[in-house]
Every structure is written in structure tokens, then in C-alpha cells.
Amino acid sequence: MTTTNTSLAFQRLEAEGRLLKPALHGPTHVTGRFGFRGEIALTIEPRVMLEAAFATAADDDETLSFLAGSLTTYKHLPALIETLGSNIKAGGKYFIYVSDLDRASRYQIEFNGVSFYVLPIDDTSVYNELIDFLYLDKTKMKKMDTAEKVDAIADAALKYTQTYEIISFEEGLKRL
């Protein structure tokens, strides 16, 4: 498997101009893995973004194996799902941090058979939340380049097996 500068899972998003402000947009240190760190535009008007996004995919896979990022409101989840469309799959690990969730809220929400971890975020960054959430060593992470950080986070996320209350999107709206 050869690592290219474009992964199938990111081609449509890139062609649509949705991959913005990349700190990483290319191969990582894991052979055959493509990574992205930046923002993903979900809608243009009004402008809705998946901020502080991290994503990985195998070069020859059309779906993302891992995705994490932050939304300003829970109500933007459907825009995320619509934007990602065929680029997500059952069995992928998707962590969405949402600003307007109560701090104690932790859910799994399924959209068309694809499960998302939906978690609260305060004033911290997605990066810091992931390090704490996945029990990564902050000292080691500081010494890594961007691609290594994305690899470390993705590797830990792909092994994550904790489950949370499974609710529908509509049930989540009622709990806001």
C-alpha cells in the first residue's frame, strides 16, 4: 500500500472546499494512513464548522476510521452527518464535542447505523479533551510533531471501547 497525498476518504470533502485551515493534510507516520487536522466546513450559509477536527483514514478506504471535533451546538449534528455522508461507516470511531451539552452528559447517538460519541466541552480544546479522555501522556505528546500526535490520538481512539447511554438525536434535543 503506497501513501499518497490524497486519501479516497478525503477527496470529496477536499473537492467541495470543506477542509480548511489544515495543520496536517497528508500522510502520517503510520504506513498507509492519511490524516487531517484543521476545520471542516459543514454549511456555508449560515457558516457551520466542525472546529479543531482530527481525522484519519487508510489511503485506500473511502471512509474515515477516526474523527473528532467540536460543534458550537448539539443542533448542528445533522449538518455534520449530512456533510460526511458516505465518508463515515459503522465501526468507525467518531467523537464529537458539543459546547451546549451539560458537563455530565455523555451519549452515543446513531445515525443510519453509524455511532457517534457525543460529549461536552467547556473552554478547553478538543486536543486537550482527547488527551485526557483517551489517557494519553501529555509529556510525550508535547515532543511529537503534528502527524505523530494525530497518529497517537487515532490509535488510542480506535481502541476505545467504553459505551455510554445510546439515545436518539431527538432525545438529545429534549435534554438540552
Rank of each mutant, 00 (worst) to 15 (best):
T2Q: 10
N5V: 10
S7M: 04
A9N: 07
A9P: 07
F10V: 02
A15W: 05
A15F: 06
E16Y: 06
E16G: 08
G17E: 01
G17Q: 02
G17F: 00
G17K: 00
L19A: 07
A23Y: 13
L24W: 12
L24F: 12
L24Y: 06
H25C: 03
G26R: 05
G26T: 08
G26L: 08
P27N: 12
V30W: 03
T31W: 02
T31Q: 09
F34S: 12
F34Q: 14
F34T: 13
F36R: 10
G38Q: 10
I40F: 01
L42Y: 09
I44M: 02
R47H: 10
M49W: 06
M49S: 03
M49N: 14
E51C: 01
A52Y: 05
F54A: 10
F54S: 13
A55P: 04
T56Q: 06
T56D: 06
D61N: 08
T63P: 06
T63A: 10
F66I: 13
A68F: 09
G69V: 03
L71H: 13
L71M: 11
L71Q: 12
K75L: 08
L77M: 15
L77N: 01
A79W: 00
I81E: 12
E82T: 15
E82C: 03
E82A: 11
T83M: 02
L84C: 03
G85A: 14
N87P: 04
I88M: 04
G91M: 00
G91N: 02
K93I: 01
Y94T: 07
F95P: 12
S99G: 13
S99Q: 15
S99A: 15
L101F: 02
D102A: 15
R103G: 09
S105L: 00
Y107N: 01
Y107I: 05
Q108D: 04
Q108F: 01
I109E: 13
E110K: 01
F111P: 00
V114R: 00
S115A: 13
Y117T: 05
Y117P: 12
L119A: 14
L119D: 11
P120I: 14
P120E: 11
D123G: 15
V126C: 08
N128K: 06
N128D: 12
L130N: 14
L130M: 14
D132E: 09
L134W: 09
L134D: 13
Y135G: 02
Y135M: 08
L136A: 14
K138I: 04
T139L: 06
T139N: 09
K140F: 05
M141T: 03
D145P: 03
D145R: 08
A147N: 01
A147D: 08
A152D: 03
A152N: 05
A152S: 10
I153T: 08
D155L: 06
A156V: 09
A156P: 05
A157K: 08
L158A: 14
Y160V: 02
Y160T: 03
Y164F: 15
I166R: 14
S168T: 15
E170Y: 02
L173W: 01
R175M: 10
